[in-house]
């Protein structure tokens, strides 16, 4: 559905995007994660045909962004990270205006505006001036605006930025609803927990380079070369630590809350060997469980490589 092939964007001397490639199949929610300035907005603007890539190709549903911008615009709903609203227009008129810009006929627009206001929960504010809306409500209105022409793909640049926790939850509920409606969604964010819950796929970008991309759990595994186990022992904890410390695979040991957290390098069989080392020495292990580092950690690891 969405394809990026070796996308490169150079601004003067600065390379904003460096050979970025990824693919998002239909119906997926692709979380685009990276620190500020990593190239998320640049990528999304290229997909919205608002920027021309220096090299590489990007296409949505078979339409090339540089050669068929008209087709791109009818396929995508784009919500930029920063946007403004017009003064002197009501919420209903605002949506109607964009409906007209997308060449929706007048009778259809009436229905579209009503449905979209229902979807984003702004029905009671239909006649309120748009510039008097709170930030969270403007954000929702902007999302509704991106949907006026019923696009197949949504490109959302930081839709939750600057929202309070409640508004963020509401935004997430709306996005879930959109996923049920079968939209393919690309959503960029630097707030990770909300992406893990919402997204089916993820791409981690940093310094213009794609660090990892694929289904959420795969990316986490791909990036977590180091894994962690939490070990609870009955009796002498120091002895267990003393046994673990010399093991080659073990990188780091932590004792907290009566449990040992061991960070090690390797796979499942390495974990089994660690357990075996303990039990062979007669340590009575009561619990031995792998700790999921989570996206946050994977992300930190992926993006810290180039920082030095």
């Amino acid at each position: 559905m969405i394809t990026a092939e070796n996308l490169t964007k150079v601004y003067g001397k600065r390379t904003a995007l460096d050979n970025v490639s990824f693919e998002v199949p239909e119906g997926e929610i692709f979380g685009f994660v990276g620190p500020n300035g990593a190239g998320k907005t640049t990528t999304l603007r290229i997909f919205a045909a608002l920027l021309e890539p220096t090299a590489g190709r990007a296409s949505i549903d078979g339409a090339d962004v540089t050669k068929q911008p008209q087709q791109i615009h009818s396929r995508i709903g784009y919500m930029p990270d920063f946007f403004g609203v017009y003064d002197q227009l009501t919420v209903g008129e605002y949506l109607d205006f964009y409906g007209a810009c997308y060449r929706q006929p007048k009778p259809r627009r009436v229905k579209i505006v009503k449905d979209l206001l229902d979807l984003v929960g702004l029905s009671e504010r239909r006649d309120q001036q748009v510039d008097t809306l709170s930030r969270g409500l403007k954000q929702r209105l902007c999302l509704a605006r991106a949907l006026v022409h019923d696009p197949v793909v949504l490109l959302l640049d930081e839709p939750a930025s600057g929202l309070d926790p409640r508004a963020r939850v509401e935004m997430r509920e709306i996005l879930k609803e959109l996923r049920r409606m079968g939209k393919t969604i690309v959503i960029s964010s630097h707030i990770l927990p909300e992406l893990t819950e919402l997204c089916t796929m993820i791409g981690i970008i940093d310094h213009g380079r794609m660090r990892a991309t694929g289904p959420v759990h795969e990316v986490i595994r791909q990036l977590s070369a180091d894994r962690r186990v939490r070990i609870t022992v009955v009796g002498d904890q120091e002895r267990a630590v003393a046994i673990l410390k010399p093991l080659a695979a073990v990188r780091h040991l932590d004792t907290a809350n009566g449990a040992i957290e061991a960070t090690f390098e390797g796979d499942d069989s390495t974990a089994a060997e660690i357990l075996h080392a303990l039990t062979a020495e007669g340590v009575r292990v009561s619990a031995f469980s792998q700790v999921d580092g989570g996206l946050e950690e994977a992300f930190m690891r992926a993006t810290s490589e180039d920082v030095e």
């Binding site: 608002l50 008209q70 615009h73 784009y78 930029p80 946007f83 017009y86 964009y98 060449r103 605006r145």
Partner: peptide, 10 residues
Amino acid sequence: QTIDLLFVTR
């Protein structure tokens, strides 16, 4: 920052 919103329309 409303111009991009117009550019992405038809």
